[in-house]
Design a protein around this nucleic acid. Structure first.
Lengths: 188, 188
DNA sequence: GGGAGAATTGCATAATTATGCAGATTGACG
DNA sequence: CGTCAATCTGCATAATTATGCAATTCTCCC
């Protein structure tokens, strides 16, 4: 059997069965009439981008990972998804991109480009934006999407009396410490 | 150093640097004042669901896995309490464990295991999870509890007011202070 | 305070995976 | 057909990772 076809078979096996080790892969291949050693199994797995880890059941397993690379440039794919619920919007970013997006959103709020938002708080890859009204999440989500997509939402009218939300006045001490850390990172 | 905090640090390292081997992880941790052996590094990586493979450049690399692999939150006592308020859920973890739990929750949301949640945000020992519907906090709290641990945790009960997060007791406060100090050293 | 039991960690080592090297196989070309 | 170059494969072994076990530390709880 030629190597390309064998790799294809390995990929199918990984998707349709639990392969816990290379020795197990060797056996699975043998059962299908393909005899190779652990050496070749190792090479095949590396070449098709398989990865090994433990699944939810605590067992080892090889899987075919997607892209191994993590985005480092946060300019293009900064906003991965936007979902609204009630007065909140949850925006997703690549790991580490939340602070940047939050700053962008805060800036838009201050400038009046995001009229229905009153502030945001960022973690590592998630930003929560608070809408002005109790049911304003949907509208806000659309505004954020449009804004990041480059739609000009320009408005010279500043929102009055609104301020970037800080959790420092929260009743919870631990949470305020967390938020303080996040806020510090957002210096601009 | 607290194991949960160390695991969070490991997760950050994996996201922000190329870690090619466990020995390299040991060195990276040492540079940040955390001294452990390869044994502990191996266990940490398995418990946070890291996987090893080759990236596009042909180098080995550990990454945090996606849907197939997930952290064993239960065995780590990662989830201390869950309370709901309106469309929000507040989950508490040991100091430094919030990022880890949030990753676990986000993974569950992405994979569809947490259907009533849309996203989470983490501080140091607190995670806020947003429910899909305006009153979905209660349901979400139950789902989170069931997901992390087959049986309900102690006092995983929803409350109505916003004063849901009780301040940590004295012992925990000390730990939180230490953890906050450690967190300050971390770059992100 | 102090004892019981759980959790954490490192050592030594088992288990597993990766790789240098040499031989085998294939395909192109004169 | 013979030769060369490239690819593929397995063996032996290096490199790396996982784990049993005992020692230590932490957590309750009385």
């Amino acid at each position: 059997m030629n190597p390309a076809a064998r790799k294809q078979l390995v990929a199918e096996l990984l998707n349709n069965a639990v392969i816990e080790s290379q020795e197990e892969l060797v056996k699975a291949l043998k059962k299908r009439g393909v005899e190779v050693t652990q050496t070749t199994a190792s090479r095949d797995l590396l070449e098709i981008g398989a990865m090994r880890g433990k699944d939810s059941g605590g067992r080892f397993r090889y899987i075919l990972g997607g892209s191994v690379t993590r985005p480092s440039a946060k300019s293009q794919n900064l906003l991965l998804s936007v979902v609204a619920s009630g007065n909140l919007v949850v925006a997703r970013t690549p790991p580490g991109g939340a602070q940047l997006l939050a700053g962008f959103i805060d800036s838009a709020i201050t400038s009046g480009d995001l009229r229905s938002g009153i502030g945001s708080i960022a973690g590592d890859d998630t930003v929560i934006v608070v809408a002005k009204t109790a049911t304003g999440g949907n509208t806000l989500a659309k505004e954020i999407t449009a804004l990041v997509d480059g739609e000009p939402l320009k408005s010279a009218k500043a929102v009055k009396g609104l301020k970037v939300m800080k959790a420092a006045n929260s009743a919870n001490s631990a949470n305020s410490a967390n938020s303080a850390k996040a806020a510090k990172k957002r210096s601009r």
